[in-house]
């Protein structure tokens, strides 16, 4: 395997594997948040705000993988 195809393969793997964890995490996070909202609709505003903070933090992990993939393709 030459270096170029190795890079592309690595980029694909990093994106695929790297988005697996955040996808599961986002699913859990949002399902729990919706559960909480269903249980206590009166604090839905607070829960939603914190859910978005959590989404932002969780999603960042997938984006690190995305950046690594970009670096592998275009920079390395």
């Amino acid at each position: 395997m030459d270096a170029e195809s190795a890079k592309l393969l690595a980029a694909g793997i990093s994106m695929g594997v790297g988005s697996l964890g955040p996808a599961l995490g986002l699913g859990m996070l949002i399902s729990k948040a919706l559960e909480s909202i269903a249980r206590q609709p009166e604090v839905s505003g607070d829960i939603r705000t914190n859910m978005f903070i959590g989404i932002g933090v969780t999603e960042a992990v997938a984006l690190y993988a995305f950046v690594i993939a970009l670096i592998l393709i275009f920079v390395a």
Partner: peptide, 13 residues
Amino acid sequence: VSLSVRLFANMLA
């Protein structure tokens, strides 16, 4: 890093 990369990567993606 995360603050900048999150925004950048989301929009770029």
